[in-house]
Design a protein around this nucleic acid. Structure first.
Lengths: 247, 247
DNA sequence: CGGATGCTTGATATGGCTCAAGGATTGTGG
DNA sequence: CCACAATCCTTGAGCCATATCAAGCATCCG
């Protein structure tokens, strides 16, 4: 019996999970046979809204999404950016009411997987349950790292740190390499993620460009001075808990 | 066969888990038969250190602890405060290297439970595994809420929000009531948790006292104006995902 | 009673915010 | 392929919330 072709949409998930853990052939097959309904969503569109009680989770196949919460007077906090392979609302499996929203940044292709199927899978293959749990724990580790930035780092350090983080996350699922990656995040989004105003975000980015540390044009980020950005932002990738590191 | 007396140290855990989920008698019994080695630790002492690879987790029976990370030049970020019933390093079950430290705030009594026993328990009682997973998800929800504070709220709002949060967490395990709770957190700790200097923390606390919103003396916090603090900090307890709410 | 720890105060400095406007890109419909 | 709208980026000026530095005071505990 031939295995599913590499274009199978759930391969995206297998690939991602293998970046943070090891799976057996049997487990891989089990994941690939999950039921999934695929949809294409426009940019800046909500997938799940604060207060919802979802009965499915959402696997990102293409495009970027973010989790965020709106406050009074139009203030917004973005908690995380998500890329293909991520299940940004995996937590809804065990926290039944959403305490924040999930929306697209770019146009995005997503696969909806019923909670019921995820639960069955975790019961039949406890190891997969553990890996999914692990994924939500890595999410939490990233939250903590953002807290360090917002609590104790300069705007420069926060932005540099996020560049390093997203680059490694993209690289782990083969969406980046050579210190170059897609960057569809606007300066307003970036500010809302890092607790900065758009004006200040803009000025720091110009400083980075001026010093030749990065180039950021046409939705592509090039990290020209990786070591310098890492040093300046006190970036240590341990918290990403990546299992396999690129060469 | 009589059930374990209420003084059984693992009752602390059962009590806490029942504040965020429902357990059957059988599950309760299974938790109570976990093996645990109990120790008393001095204040300001590390329990697990950044970089460790623990083989057990640590249930708080008495006292307060916090998770934190040290940065260059003595800067520190505290990620969370933990109280009796919490297992602050539960994540080490699936993230094998600690990316931060766990230490005591006050003198504390802790019970060490081997990872192996936790894994067995989760396998024999998948429902308990789910509840533990859920607990780590609530942790992450609290991280997100702190991110909102540090990214988008004033010092006043952050402190007020933390007061509301800790009061409800303590109340959920019967350690607070009547808008009064223990508060062993120094002003330096509070600043390190919320991304503030100790000087500014002090001034905001005085403002709160001056306005008659709180009283904070001798390690006891009294929230005199609950509604006002909730309003000013945009506090909405949904993110704590408490199952049973006090009357 | 003395040392340690934590709290309070004043003075000064600054990183980042707000407001406001103009310029550059990008995507879209004709 | 152009024109226009929408979105995003950039710039300047002024200000404020919070940081830093430095010292003295209060409280707790052995």
């Amino acid at each position: 019996m031939p295995s599913a072709p590499d274009t199978h949409s759930l391969n995206t998930l297998v690939h991602k999970l293998q970046s943070i853990a090891t799976l057996s052939d049997e487990e891989r097959q089990a994941i690939l046979s999950l039921p999934a309904r695929t949809r294409i969503l426009a940019p800046r569109q909500d997938i799940v809204h604060d207060g919802d009680k979802p009965s499915q989770c959402c696997l990102i196949l293409d495009g970027w999404t973010c989790r965020y919460k709106m406050l009074s007077e139009g203030r917004r906090q973005i908690f995380s950016f998500h890329i293909p392979g991520d299940i940004p609302d995996l937590q809804s499996l065990h926290l039944h009411t959403m305490d924040h929203s999930l929306g697209t940044i770019t146009q995005a292709t997503v696969a909806y997987i019923p909670h019921e199927s995820m639960r069955e899978l975790s019961t039949r293959f406890p190891r997969i349950g553990e890996v999914l749990w692990r994924d939500t724990l890595v999410d939490a580790a990233i939250f903590r790292e953002w807290m360090i930035g917002m609590g104790r780092k300069s705007a420069f350090g926060r932005i540099a740190h996020l560049f390093c983080e997203m680059y490694l996350k993209l690289e782990a699922v083969d969406l980046a390499g050579d210190h170059r990656c897609p960057w569809p995040i606007t300066q307003v989004d970036l500010g809302d993620a890092l607790g900065l105003s758009n004006v200040h975000t803009n000025r720091v980015l110009q400083e980075m460009r001026g010093k030749g540390l990065i180039s950021l044009r046409g939705s592509t980020l090039v990290i020209q001075a990786w070591d310098e950005l890492m040093r300046a932002s006190e970036f240590d990738p341990t918290y990403l808990h990546l299992e396999k590191r690129a060469a």
